[in-house]
């Protein structure tokens, strides 16, 4: 398809070399490139998957004193149930009052019932501190390393907010990741994943029945 045209046209004087215009047709080349691009677009993933790093507590080394390190009033237990239901209670479970367990949701900050609203309220001081640090970092007043160090200090402060996540057998993996997400959003450094105890499941049932179970067991 490449063409070599003699330019000018008309009669040319003898002795003068012919002017050549060289024109190559690039259409097949473009076709091939387009095919290759399509191939690469379909066969590759541009976005690398993200990862959440979690560290589980070491089972054997957990001493009694460490277990009780979290103050009762600073602990929140979140129970993940099936059908995207989520419940939480503060501190120790209160089996006599069924309203101590509250139903919540995975919604955003605009939902007054959501976990995020609850956790941001509870963890307000730490979030404020971290936001201030972040502002300072953005203004280049402090270094990155210092920022990271300070944030982890705030997050892991002994009197900080602690969360215990208890996914029931009916919950899905998505629920777990959602809650872990909330931990990251609400700057909660102390959290653990645990199995729900019988008492926890009982609390959920009790709430669903509106305190009937508690009333029955008292009789």
């Amino acid at each position: 398809m490449a063409e070599v045209n003699t330019g000018g046209g008309g009669e040319q004087k003898k002795g003068k070399p012919k002017k050549m215009t060289l024109r190559v047709d690039f259409t097949p080349m473009v076709d091939m490139n387009m095919l290759l691009i399509t191939f690469f677009m379909f066969c590759t993933s541009l976005a690398k998957p993200q990862a959440m790093e979690i560290g589980m507590p070491v089972k054997d080394d957990l001493k009694a004193e460490e277990k009780s390190k979290v103050k009762d009033d600073k602990a929140i237990t979140i129970i993940l149930d099936g059908e995207n239901k989520v419940y939480y209670y503060l501190g120790m479970p209160n089996y006599t009052d069924y309203t101590s367990l509250k139903e919540s949701s995975y919604g955003g900050i605009d939902d007054p019932k959501s976990l995020r609203t609850m956790l941001t309220n509870r963890n307000r001081i730490a979030i404020q501190k971290i936001n201030r640090l972040r502002d300072m970092k953005n203004r280049k007043e402090i270094k990155d390393d210092y920022y990271k160090e300070e944030v982890s200090k705030i997050k892991n402060a002994k009197d900080g907010q602690a969360v215990i996540i208890k996914p029931t057998d009916k919950s899905s993996y998505q629920n777990l990741v959602d809650v872990l997400d909330e931990m990251a959003i609400c700057q909660i450094g102390i959290y653990a994943i645990d199995d729900p105890k019988e008492g926890d499941l009982w609390l959920v049932k009790n709430l669903e029945s509106g305190g009937e179970l508690a009333a029955k067991s008292e009789l």
Binding site: P57, V58, K59
Partner: peptide
């Protein structure tokens, strides 16, 4: 993993 004393791992997710 816990049983094998592997306490750190990555949960692979996509960016929301």
């Amino acid at each position: 993993l816990m049983d094998l004393k592997q306490y750190r791992y990555h949960l692979i997710t996509t960016l929301e």
